[in-house]
Design a protein around this nucleic acid. Sequence first.
DNA 1: TAAGATACATTCAGTCTGTATGTTTTCTTA
DNA 2: TAAGAAAACATACAGACTGAATGTATCTTA
Lengths: 192, 192
Amino acid sequence: MPRSNRERTDATRTVLLDAARKLFIEKGYAETATPEIVAAADVTRGALYHHFPDKKALFWAVIEREANNVAADIDAHSAEASSAREALLQGASAYFDAMAVPGRTRLLLKEAPAQHAIDNGEGEDPAEQGLKIGLSHLLAGSENLKLLDPLTSLISSAFEKAAIAIDCGGKRADYEAAIAALLDGLIAQPRR
Amino acid sequence: MPRSNRERTDATRTVLLDAARKLFIEKGYAETATPEIVAAADVTRGALYHHFPDKKALFWAVIEREANNVAADIDAHSAEASSAREALLQGASAYFDAMAVPGRTRLLLKEAPAQHAIDNGEGEDPAEQGLKIGLSHLLAGSENLKLLDPLTSLISSAFEKAAIAIDCGGKRADYEAAIAALLDGLIAQPRR
DNA sequence: TAAGATACATTCAGTCTGTATGTTTTCTTA
DNA sequence: TAAGAAAACATACAGACTGAATGTATCTTA
């Protein structure tokens, strides 16, 4: 059965990404060898190195696809919120929902940072952007608005830690409550 | 010049740990090959594999030594505090001081978690213990005390993120202020 | 349909890890 | 203090993996 080049490329890339995703989740990046990936995908290493410059490029392609899926999931479940506080809490809930897809936490919050540490020194995290906007509304009128950037960074890391903890069996309700407590504390408070 | 076995062992282990530490900081664990380490330490791979079961064991020995040094540094600079809030802020300052030693942030907050992700699923972090105690005092009388464990976990991750940000050039004063803002927000507040 | 481009397969060179074995130095004990 | 044991270290090797080079089949297009 003849297939167009576009179809062949799409199919091969997809089976490679799927197989790599599965193995990276199960065993991690370093412990997964390319012969194993291509065997699972039922192609050869030639195909892999035709479509990706190297093993890392395949990994980042997996990560990018997963991150896009997370963003799409969050977008799909976003509704109107009555306040900045509600918007952030709903965003948190949507985030935890999205990260509940098996493997996502491992891929995006464990494997990806692990590989990132090697080469890059942390550059503008796009995932923090939404949180930063929400926080800027929450902190409007508060002294803490001056600390928007560092607070965004710290809260973001709290979100990630919460997702990891939930993935490891922690009670989601507890972590959502803890996140809420952190956010509520930042709202303008009377200094007595 | 004759040396006792104990002296030989200590000396060899030390030069290996020092060389490995330097290279792990510069290039990361995965990118550092054992031939490179032993060359820098001026011993052979035989010596390395005599003293350590494998490359990972050497890595964890480096990490353990560094973590002990951090704990010792923090202990050395701990003073009496007049309140739970002050105790936590002083602890934060001591932590950031300790993590300011070049390479520590990379080793303990980037490389170690990266390797940890592979095999282990996060087990009781001893570094969180001190924070948990401090938080338990801060939250005494607050509704948030119920959330002590998750809050400890999230605040801890905020500390780590702050240390990383500072290590990457962020302004320490800003992150200390942000940490203070997070902690202050957790203190019992009037719900209006 | 011929020529070139693309997709894929196979082979190969270099490197790395961990093990097995050999050699030297220190320790023990008779 | 001499000889055997044990520890410390060095060397050699086997297996595996990555990435590049090269070869072949399939598709596209003029």
